[in-house]
Design a protein around this nucleic acid. Structure first.
Length: 270
DNA sequence: AATAACACCTGTGTGC
DNA sequence: TGCACACAGGTGTTAT
């Protein structure tokens, strides 16, 4: 489900519920996520939340004792619910707030993670190898052009790896490459500076627009307030195999790149 | 060291 | 209906 726009949409929805509030209890129903949930997690309450931030696709809930780190994996989501809401299949964790609210973590495939750390986040292993945030000046054409020089892999994989840049997943990688008019299977080191500039701009624009629209709801993405996203209405190539290109009407093609479905227009993208 | 494939897990859709 | 298989918004680990 979640790439950067969906994670950011989630962050914006839960932040007002959490900031300056207290998590009074954490109920764990299923500890087997990507990494087993530490038993310590249930024992650290009450937690006073100071701030809710995002780095790449990770949510960071900062408290007086440490930080909760949440990753939604492929199918995870958070919801804001009244405390009497009954549990359903795949509900794994409840964060019980003071008052009548809880925040519930649900994740059918359990590729996501909920971690507790008292480390400085800059020293945490999860954040060591991440590239720059896409919506900052650190992610720019010269940076990407320099990095791409010794990359012998498809450019689509390069921008999805969370090393050249973070937050880009399969939907937005396809969409950004279409907007930049670059084929997803181009070897990264064949991009010239101008193409890097177009790609950087396309990534920034597509992510900004998707955040504005509350993310992409293909199937089941909902914000914690149960609102769907609307960026799927703006998709040019993702999941549009055989449908006409929005620019030239030629049918969109689908290929596999590093095991992931990749969609492009063979006329508009070079 | 860089790159590609695999693994984790459940649900859904398709074709026989 | 049932079954087998492909596929799904991610990423750490293992193999090449």
């Amino acid at each position: 489900m979640p790439e950067l726009p969906e994670v950011e949409t989630t962050r914006r929805a839960i932040a007002p519920e959490l900031i300056n509030q207290t998590i009074e209890a954490i109920n764990i129903y299923q500890p087997k996520l990507r990494w087993p949930i530490s038993p310590q997690l249930a024992n650290c309450c009450p937690l006073e939340v100071h701030e809710v931030t995002r780095r790449a696709k990770y949510l960071q809930i900062h408290t007086q004792l440490g930080t909760l780190i949440i990753h939604l994996g492929m199918s995870g989501h958070l919801r804001i619910l009244p405390q009497n809401t009954s549990l359903q299949k795949h509900d794994h964790i409840d964060f019980i707030l003071k008052g009548n609210t809880l925040i519930r973590y649900t994740d059918p495939r359990r590729f996501g993670a909920v971690l507790w750390t008292q480390q400085e986040l800059s020293e945490h292993s999860l954040f060591q190898k991440l590239g720059p945030e896409p919506l900052t000046r650190a992610f720019n054409a010269i940076y990407l052009f320099t990095l791409v020089q010794n990359k012998s892999q498809p450019i689509k994989h390069c921008i999805m790896e969370q090393k050249a840049v973070v937050g880009v997943g399969n939907i937005y990688a396809n969409e950004a490459l279409f907007r930049a008019k670059i084929r997803p299977d181009r070897n990264a080191n064949t991009l010239n500076l101008e193409e890097c500039k177009l790609l950087v701009t396309a990534i920034k624009n597509v992510l900004r627009k998707a955040i504005e629209k509350g993310g992409t709801t293909l199937k089941d993405f909902r914000s914690p307030l149960n609102q769907q996203g609307y960026f799927q209405l703006d998709l040019d190539v993702y999941n549009r195999e055989g449908k006409p290109c929005t620019l030239c009407s030629k049918p969109i093609e689908r290929i596999k790149i590093q095991q992931r479905s990749s969609f492009y227009c063979s006329t508009c993208q070079q």
